[in-house]
């Protein structure tokens, strides 16, 4: 008797996967209607994960230095009265003689010193602004960036704290033009032989990607290593355990195994290494510009 009743009340799902109310038996009315979603099984397989990772990589690797340069480019338009305060401005809204508009608040500081022969360079930028060019394209921010680097003979280190949302519709970099949101920590170093960067946190450029202690390296034998997660269309996260050979197993986060993949991310990983000082593109010889 129980089985027919349970069957009568089993949840139904329409062909598009939208939960629908099931017809109910009055004997079970004290229960809530059963709703299902396609969340119990992964909507993506391993190949979908690989395709998503590779597609996302075509936007390039977000680089705080590019954001800083974009901001400083705008500041060259400062005409002395707009924006008042120079790089540390608080402007309701003003337009320069050259037609650039500044609106919002900015804090920018950079510091440089030498200790024991090593250069210490750091900069901090907090933005809550909208800056608009005469052609109508805007650079908008809501967040903060901190970069602290030490560059010495044969050794360079960098500490990055990257937060908030940044978008520049006039940028020629895909990740910047389409908008970036991140909450990311980075620690990088290089010596004469190898450079590496470890990232912890998330970044959304096109798709959301999460780095759980992911290590990028200039070592051709181990360009990337760690757990890199990407969010699927259904909102669920898919993990890829990257191994030194660029391959590794995938899974629905906290769920089923989905098979191994070897996504083509070398170019992207090399672009990530541009975050570490001293590894200029021509030195790296990656064949890359600053991103697509």
């Amino acid at each position: 008797m129980l089985i027919p009743l349970i069957l009568a009340c089993s949840p139904t799902t329409d062909p598009k996967g939208t939960p629908t109310a099931s017809s109910r038996d009055t004997a079970l009315d004290l229960a809530a209607p059963a709703w299902s979603a396609d969340d119990a099984v992964a909507a993506w397989d391993a190949q979908d994960i690989q395709a998503a990772l590779e597609l996302n990589a075509t936007l390039g690797f977000a680089n705080p230095e590019s954001i800083r340069r974009s901001f400083l480019d705008f500041m060259t338009q400062d005409d002395g009265t707009c924006p008042s305060g120079g790089e540390n401005f608080g402007s309701l809204k003003c337009t320069t003689e050259s037609g650039y508009t500044f609106s919002g608040i900015s804090i920018y500081q950079e510091r440089s010193s030498s200790v024991d022969g090593a250069r210490q360079q750091s900069w901090t930028h907090v933005g809550d602004y909208k800056l608009t060019r005469p052609d109508g394209t805007s650079f908008e921010s809501g967040g903060g960036l901190v970069s602290s680097a030490t560059v010495g003979t044969g050794l360079a280190e960098i500490d990055l704290k990257l937060r908030g949302s940044w978008i520049d519709a006039g940028s020629n970099m895909g990740w910047f033009r389409s908008g970036l949101s991140w909450l990311l920590l980075g620690l990088g170093r290089r010596d004469a032989e190898v450079g590496e960067l470890t990232l912890d946190g998330g970044v959304t450029t096109g798709r959301a990607v999460y780095f759980d202690d992911v290590r990028f390296s200039t070592d051709p034998d181990c360009r990337i290593e760690g757990t890199l997660s990407i969010q699927g269309d259904d909102g669920h996260w898919y993990d890829w355990q990257a191994g030194c050979d660029g391959c590794g197993p995938t899974s629905l986060q906290g769920g089923e195994e989905l098979g191994s993949i070897c996504p083509a991310l070398d170019t992207w990983a090399a672009a990530a290494m541009l975050l570490v000082p001293g590894l200029e593109p021509e030195v790296m010889d990656t064949g890359l510009e600053d991103g697509p």
């Binding site: 809501g142 967040g143 949302s165 949101s181």
Partner: peptide, 9 residues
């Protein structure tokens, strides 16, 4: 949000 009152965030 990392910056309250910010439209983009």
């Amino acid at each position: 949000t990392t910056v309250e009152y910010n439209a983009l965030e």
